[in-house]
């Protein structure tokens, strides 16, 4: 199934760029697997960001443009913590324990900042969802500006040695994946599973789903919606903070890192269905995969460069909005 289009295309398109395609046939498979593996890692980050965006959309009822910068806040909180704790000591998945402390700090700080923003900024506002949307842009700028003032505008990195790919996986399958990337996917899976358990099997989860469904009804049923909204911010921003720390580990840190990813996360959330947490997870995986599989287009001679990976996500987003605004898993939110 895979080999036949490769053969046809490499025959038709002279000078197709990837060596794998030029060799034809199965030679391209390791390359493709690499893109897929990379896509899984990137998806994990998008999913962590998407859940919070979707939660805010369903419970607080607005498109939160500060969500990307909440990820940045988490990433830089991690940077500070890692600097304080240091990267010495025992390692898990080739990551020092200090990194896990940084991860927890990123989650905690992002959550605290988001809850504080809710009470200081959003809560006193007397406005509709559009007013909240516009306000969240201002909040995003304030977050980013404060990070720039503190840490400068350039790129930084976590003080953790970059790794070579895990040798036995590379030998066996040709996939170059580092232990860090495995750790990102594993921890993200644990967080997502934990969220699933919370949503489905705890009172908090049930009250959250009830509030998202119909806030007024939840209120008259005796649910303390104010508390639910606070927990929603804690969970959403906490996951975003974790996503930010992972994004910093996966790439680099810069004050714009979260804002640059925001629209891609929006694309994932819209594709999955606004307001649906599980849709956001699904959309995150699809958009993350599509994003990292874009080089395949060039390899097959389609003149769309990898630089357009985000553009493809945005176009998918607009198409979903047009054709099926409720997304894949949407429950008639419209």
């Amino acid at each position: 199934m895979l080999a036949s289009p490769v053969a046809t295309w490499s025959g038709v398109v002279a000078g197709a760029s990837a060596p794998g395609v030029a060799q034809g046939g199965l030679g391209y498979l390791p390359q493709l697997l690499n893109y897929l593996a990379n896509g899984v890692v990137f998806s994990a980050i998008i999913v962590l960001g998407g859940i919070g965006l979707s939660l805010v959309y369903s419970i607080a009822d607005f498109a939160n443009f500060a969500h990307g910068d909440t990820m940045t806040v988490g990433a830089y909180a991690g940077l500070l913590t890692l600097g304080a704790v240091g990267s010495a000591g025992p390692q898990v998945f080739a990551l020092p324990l200090g990194f896990y402390a940084a991860l927890l700090a990123g989650i905690a700080v992002a959550a605290v900042v988001a809850v504080a923003t809710h009470y200081l900024v959003y809560e006193p506002l007397d406005t509709d969802s559009i007013g909240l949307l516009i306000t969240s842009i201002g909040v995003a700028f304030v977050y980013r500006a404060l990070i720039q003032i503190q840490f400068g505008r350039g790129f930084t990195e976590y003080d953790i040695a970059t790794l070579r790919p895990i040798p036995w996986i590379e030998d066996l399958t040709g996939i170059t994946v580092t232990e860090h990337e495995v750790a990102i996917v594993l921890v993200a899976s644990v967080l997502v599973t934990a969220l699933h358990v919370v949503l489905q099997y705890t009172t908090l989860g049930r009250t959250m789903r009830a509030t998202a469904d119909n806030e007024a009804l939840a209120k008259v049923s005796g649910i303390r919606t104010e508390r639910v909204i606070t927990s929603m911010w804690v969970i959403g921003a906490g996951l975003a903070g974790a996503g930010g720390v992972f994004l910093g580990l996966y790439n680099q840190l810069s004050p714009r890192m979260g804002f640059n990813l925001l629209l891609v996360i929006f694309a994932a959330v819209i594709l999955g269905g606004i307001g649906s947490v599980y849709g956001a997870m699904l959309g995150g995986v699809v958009i993350g995969m599509v994003n990292r599989l874009t080089p395949v287009l060039t390899d097959f001679g389609i003149p769309i460069e990898p630089a357009y990976a985000n553009a493809i996500a945005f176009v998918i987003m607009v198409l979903v909005l047009l054709v099926r605004p409720t997304g894949i898993a949407g429950e008639g939110v419209s």
Binding site: V121, L125, G131, I137, F141, V142, Y143, R144, A145, R153
Partner: peptide
């Protein structure tokens, strides 16, 4: 950076 801060704060305050 302070310019961005001022702009962001202005949005929040006006709203």
């Amino acid at each position: 950076s302070w310019r961005l801060f001022a702009v962001g704060l202005l949005i929040v305050l006006v709203m």
